[in-house]
Amino acid sequence: MVKMILWRSVYAVASLFVVSVIVFAATQALPGDAAVAKLGKNATPAALESFRQLYHLNDPLPTQYVNWLGNILQGRLGVSFATGFPVGSLIGDQVANSLVLIAATVVIAVPLAVVLGILTAIRRDRATDHISSVLMLVISALPEFVLGVALVLLFATNVSQVLPAVSPVDPSRSIFQQLDLIVLPTLTLVLLVLPYVVRTVRACMIEALESEYVTMARLKGMSERRVVLRHALPNMAGPTFQVVAQSLAYLAGGVVVVESVFQFPGIGQAFVSSVLSRDLPVIQAVAMLLAVFYVLVNLLADIGTVAMTPTMRGGTR
């Protein structure tokens, strides 16, 4: 088990390393010149040159990469070209906002999906199950911006006006004092991941309920409640971790679109505006952050799966 965690961590670090190379190469390949983007088309060649000097843009690419990686490893994300502020303080709030959004989504979506998945499995082929699967199918067929707009129509404009249509979080106050602003974005994200998780949980639960050890538990005189909670549930924990991790990774991407629908100042907004202004250090920092999030979530899910599955423990990978 310990060996497996170590191995997985090594893989995680290795994949992040590969990602860093790709991120660096991709940002270098972006069309346009950071110096021109910052100083304008009318800047003198001397000004452009001194900007490039200042940010070491004339160094050979490998040197730039090594310096950049070294700085990142020490927690120095660099200085924004566009504003001159350190990247860390610039996107810190936005990252925090997005994390709150994702956390709220997970806290609501995962328990809801697990309960729904189990219920529909137990009531397989009955009304609850059919209604749920049709609903889930409809939701998963809608793109995230349509979902977001539909929710806005329902709760913020024509039908009722209980919630704000856009979420311009006031940066001077904590996001926790403006929770009404994250309700609709969260709801959108919840609906986004729900169908996928529900369907996986339902399938795993049905498989567990049809297993011989569940039949055996019934023949040993266990109550149906005990059969579900003690015998079936632990055996579907592994797959559930996996699907939750995948939805989380999906959320990190979905959050970009949803943030733009609600004009929510999160990591997505930071990403889009930094690309528009060729703000290389910000682009790189955001891309790396998303990668770290993705890899970390998958690592945790793998560890969780192995920890919950006795037959997988003891293996090395």
């Binding site: 297993s211 050890y213 040993k220 055996n235 599955t309 006795p310």
Partner: peptide, 17 residues
């Protein structure tokens, strides 16, 4: 009245000691 199934591997819960 108790039952002994055909396939013990499948009939013991893999996630329980």
């Amino acid at each position: 009245i108790s039952y002994v199934p055909q396939d013990p591997r499948a009939s013991l819960n893999p996630a329980m000691r």
